[in-house]
Design a binder for these strands. Structure first.
Lengths: 143, 143
DNA sequence: CTCCTTTTAATAGCAAGCTATGTATATATG
DNA sequence: CATATATACATAGCTTGCTATTAAAAGGAG
């Protein structure tokens, strides 16, 4: 009938691939008590502690409501604490707990291992081109 | 501290890219009364009507529980009906409604337009390599 | 034929994404 | 200053994904 073929559709493949990445990561960081969105958020907090929800929303490109819920779960799970922001009573600064700080090496190693498995059958050039293509696609979809 | 950089992580980029694809598709098919997972399911049913939930699970590589819930919403929304399977009292066959059949051209056009926007800054070779790389990554992550 | 295992589907409960809305504080403007 | 707009965050409600569990039917081994 139509020639729309899911195995040739970048959007379909992107969805499928992202689900497999998420599954692989979830499996490896579950023993650490982490979930994928929490890990993604920790990546930013390991880089800079004491930032606000607004900062995280900007850096991770998710909706504010999504980040609010992720932070609530992270607070519940003892990964972050929040303090009043000096100079802006609306905002709160977000701070890593010792537990969250300690998880960094193991969590990053887990993520690196999923990435390694994912690109294991790509040559170095293919891998570089693949990452560059994803950047271009992300930019095009944001525009 | 660490050299884990999200903009170089295939997994991070895959997640970000998939969210942007889903957003673009959702925006375009919302006027049709469709959501992305429903569209993905319709792609298979437009190809072959009267299959079972089990068939859809195998073809779309989602968990059975995920498909069960998607089908429940599609039934609620008047996109499918279900009938007793002849010869297997556990299964039910899934059938498109007229409304779902009528949506095919517009929905596929919407998906094609998201794909076109996504790859607009890739050359033809880059586009082919990108799709091939996603297939390889999917295979590697499934293995 | 009976019992055990496998298969098909439904349901519960959670994470993570979204839109839409509300609330409180900051800031800008008349 | 007063009021209007903008910003920071929370909450409600939805979809889509997952795991784990259950129920019912089918199929296979004795």
């Amino acid at each position: 009938m139509s020639d729309f073929e899911k195995t040739r559709s970048p959007g379909y493949l992107a969805n499928h691939m992202a689900r497999l990445f998420a599954h692989g990561l979830a499996e490896r960081i579950r023993p650490l008590g982490l979930a994928p969105a929490q890990f993604m958020t920790l990546l930013e907090l390991w880089r800079e502690d004491g930032i606000t929800q607004r900062d995280l929303v900007a850096r991770l490109d998710v909706e504010q409501a999504t980040m609010a819920n992720t932070l609530k779960r992270m607070e519940r799970d003892g990964l972050i604490t929040r303090r009043a922001h000096e100079g802006d009573a609306r905002a709160r600064t977000i701070h890593l707990t010792d537990r969250a700080r300690d998880l960094q090496p193991a969590a990053e190693e887990a993520a690196a291992s999923v990435n390694a498995q994912a690109v294991q059958d790509l040559s170095e050039e293919e891998r570089v081109a693949f990452v560059a293509a994803m950047h271009k696609v992300i930019a095009a979809l944001k525009g």
